[in-house]
Every structure is written in C-alpha cells, then in structure tokens.
C-alpha cells in the first residue's frame, strides 16, 4: 500500500546553526503506526513538528498523499492532519462540543453536520455526548480530557495523525486503558500515525514500526520484533531500562 506520509532526508537547524534533526527519512502507510522513540532532546518532537510545519524543514522533502507539504498553505495543511500533544491544549473557554468541532468549524461545515460529527466522535472515544458535550475541560478528568483531545484530532477525518506523548501525563492505570483503546481505535480507523514517546514499552505495544532517535538522527528503524533483537547499543540501552 502506498505511503500516506513520506519523509525524505529531513533536516532542521536553528538560525544560529545548531542542528536538531538531521537526515531523517521514513514512510507511514494507512493502518500503520510509526513510533518515534527517543530520550528527551533526541529530536523526536522536532521531527514531528516538521511534518505539520509548526517548524519549517531546512532541507529534505516531506510528502503527504504524494504532495509536498510546502506546496500547501500551512494552515490548510494542518487542518488535514490530526495533532495531539501531551498537554492536550483544549480551549478552556469552549465546551467539549465546541472543542471537538473546531476544525470542521474552521473548514466551514454546516452546523448540523458538525453537531452530528461531534456526537459520533465522542461516542467513538467512549464519552457519552449527552453527558460530556456541554461540559468545560476543567470539569473533566485527565483521561477524559485526552479522549476529547483525540476526538478533536479526528474531527475532520484526516488520513494522518501526529501524536506527541499523548498519554505521558496520565496516571499509569488510565494510561494502560487509553493505550488499549488506542489499539482498538486504530484497528477500526486504519489511519497513518506517527506517535512520539520516550516509553519503550508503550512504543513496542502500539507501534508497527519503531524509529529510534538519537541526537537528531534515526539510528534504528524496524519492526518491534527487530527492535527487540537488535544489537544496536541504543536499542539495548532502551530495552535494559524497560527491564
């Protein structure tokens, strides 16, 4: 199956010259979850932001469904990519419904279609629309908030999702719950997903492919099975830490 996302030789350097991402290449097909694994400062979040152009690549090419990302206006590009961050970033002055319906609203959908889509998405992430739709983010638990964050990212049915440590701030039990729901959801929706984490267990559980990042480069790229068997010292270090 052809890749939804292709990253070729992506590089990102700060104006002062420090290189944060160097020669990163990978592809992600529909139904596939690529996990970018790495320690803090390894460049995995930077690499993710190059895809939706929150940061502009200084070299290399990124294509989504065959089209180079720089051919589109950045705001249009981003509306076609789901984006979830650890801090979630729900709008505190919007109800759950308005938060989830944001991208459809930006895209000018009619109100009834937005309302129907919001109900469908809340049910999909396991939140009763009648109970939660009118609530504000501060009235939700951490796990519920992140479910809303995922629903919001799925709102305009984008083929590609970028997730930056989405479960990192949750308590261990909620995290396991959401990881399980993520797998079930992905089996149904078959999106192309790039998932950033520093948690090797989470990476091995959720990913079809693991890209291990170190100092801005991908030093290992392969299946979870290959990762487990790899003799690469960075892979060994991560597996040793996981116990």
């Amino acid at each position: 199956m052809s890749a939804v996302l292709e990253v070729r030789g992506a590089r990102y350097a700060l104006p002062q010259g420090r290189v944060l991402v160097e020669d990163v290449s990978f592809g992600v097909a529909p139904g596939e979850t690529l996990v970018l694994l790495g320690r803090s400062g390894s460049g995995k979040t930077t690499a993710l932001k190059l895809i939706n152009r929150l940061l502009e690549p200084t070299a290399g090419e990124i294509r989504i469904a065959g089209r180079p990302t720089h051919a589109l206006e950045a705001t249009r590009l981003r509306r076609g990519i789901g984006y979830v961050i650890q801090e979630i970033g729900l709008f505190p002055h919007f109800t759950v419904e308005r938060n989830v319906g944001l991208v459809p609203r930006l895209e000018g959908w009619p109100a009834e279609r937005i309302a129907a889509r919001v109900r469908e998405l809340l049910a999909l992430v396991g939140l009763d629309p009648g109970v939660f739709g009118a609530r504000y983010p501060h009235e939700l638990s951490g796990g519920q908030r992140q479910r809303v964050g995922v629903a919001r990212a799925l709102a305009a049915d984008p083929p590609l999702l970028l997730l930056d440590e989405p479960f990192g701030a949750l308590d261990p039990i909620t995290r396991v719950e959401l990881q399980r729901e993520f797998l079930a959801l992905q089996r149904r929706l078959r999106k192309a997903i790039v998932f950033v984490t520093h948690d090797v267990r989470e990476g091995l559980l959720l990913g079809n492919a693991i890209g291990l990042m170190q100092e801005g480069r991908i030093v290992f790229l392969g299946t979870p099975e290959e990762f487990r068997r790899s003799e690469h010292p960075a892979c060994r270090a991560f597996l040793a830490a996981a116990g």
């Binding site: 929150l54 950045a74 984006y83 970033g89 709008f91 919001r152």
Partner: peptide
C-alpha cells in the same frame, strides 16, 4: 495564555487572526 492552548490551535490550522 497557556502555550499548549496556542500550540494546539496552531497545530489544528488556525490562522493568527483566528
């Protein structure tokens, strides 16, 4: 304003004016 809120807004494709 919480930087995460701003980043989420930009990441979802809001223009600066929006």
């Amino acid at each position: 304003v919480d930087p995460a809120v701003r980043e989420a807004g930009r990441g979802m494709g809001m223009t600066d004016g929006q």
